[in-house]
Computed example of a mutant assay.
Amino acid sequence: MTKHMTVTRQDWLAARLALLQAEKEHTRRSDALAQQRQAMPWLRVDKTYSFDTAAGSASLADLFQGRSQLIVYHFMFGPDYTVGCPSCSAITDGLNGIAVHLQNHDVALSLVSRAPLAKLLAYRQRMGWTLPWASSHGSDFNFDFNVSFTEAQQRDGSIDYNYTRGGHAMDSALRPPVEVPEAVVQTAAGCGTDVATFARDRPGMSSFVLEDGVVYHTYSAYARGVDAIWGMYPWLDRAPKGRNESGIWWRRHDEYGQPATKPATMSCCG
């Protein structure tokens, strides 16, 4: 017998109509936030960045691939990782399917990571993805857009991530006596690296526009600011038990069915 409240059809419909009003308010607020994002001022990108891609060396403007808009997902795959971050991989599973639709609506979508291109392309093949992936290895791009950090920044606590200094779990975890969250330990090991090396790369997304040959930076979001692009979460939020999480339960899609690891207490990217 279920312990959850059960009602008559009439009472269920009344509850659903009340929820519908709240959902409509949320939708209107979301629309207003989208308009506020689009009204953000643009920041001209004057610095020259070079990327390695499957088609050869590319500039930031080249990543637009003839379109006027570009969205970059900053995929956590540092030079010393052996495989990509599982959280970023779960996000990319969803991005891969929508890339063609964005491309046909004047928006280019590209992953960018610091690992050498050969590593990225090998992992992309393993995952079965087709969307573009550019390596910023040797470039300042990830550092300038606040998704990669140096050992010196880790040591002196000068990491600014998600517009806050030292506010993320991966920052505090590296400053004794704070204990490293188990989720970070697990995920670092799963990427074939140690915690400090793993934590020098972070997730995020950035948007750009190309106008009259000039690239402008329009928007960036980090940590839970990219929560909305996790394709599985809008569905879980509508499932009877919701997200129902006690730690990291997701894996790379080709790892389900393998022995489970010890339950974690939080997401590495949350």
Rank of each mutant, 00 (worst) to 15 (best):
D80N: 11
T187Q: 12
F77H: 11
R252N: 08
R16G: 01
H74G: 04
A34E: 05
S207F: 04
T265G: 09
E23W: 13
A169L: 11
C191N: 04
A22K: 12
Y163A: 06
S50E: 12
L111A: 13
Q103E: 15
C85D: 15
A239V: 05
G192K: 09
R251G: 01
A189V: 01
R114P: 00
S267E: 11
F77G: 03
Y233M: 03
V45F: 03
A260R: 15
P132K: 06
F75Y: 15
Q258S: 06
F143D: 02
R44S: 02
E179P: 08
D62V: 04
M76G: 02
V215Y: 06
L121A: 09
D237Q: 11
V147N: 08
G94W: 05
L70T: 08
L121P: 04
D140P: 14
R175M: 01
Q125K: 14
D106K: 13
S110R: 07
G231S: 12
V226I: 12
P263F: 02
H101F: 13
E245A: 13
R29C: 02
V180K: 15
D106M: 10
W235I: 05
W129S: 00
R224T: 14
L210D: 04
T187F: 00
Y81Q: 08
P203W: 03
D80H: 08
T265P: 00
Q186G: 07
G231Y: 08
R165E: 08
M127C: 05
L131M: 14
Q153F: 07
S113Q: 11
H26L: 15
A122Q: 08
S158G: 02
P79C: 02
S172T: 13
G190E: 08
V178K: 07
V100A: 15
G242T: 05
D52L: 09
P132W: 06
A196Y: 03
S57N: 01
I98G: 03
A22V: 14
P86E: 10
T2H: 10
Q38E: 14
Y256S: 13
F141H: 07
D46W: 01
R243D: 00
L43W: 00
T197S: 15
G56C: 01
N96Q: 03
L111Y: 05
Q153N: 03
K47L: 03
Q10N: 10
G247A: 07
E211Y: 07
P177N: 09
I98V: 14
Q38A: 15
T6M: 13
A90I: 07
G128N: 10
L120P: 06
D254S: 05
L13I: 11
V215S: 09
D194Q: 12
L20V: 06
T197H: 06
A173S: 14
F77C: 00
A58P: 07
V215E: 00
E182F: 14
M127K: 13
A223W: 07
S57A: 15
A14I: 11
L117W: 12
A58F: 05
M232W: 10
W230C: 14
S68R: 11
L102V: 09
T92N: 04
D52K: 10
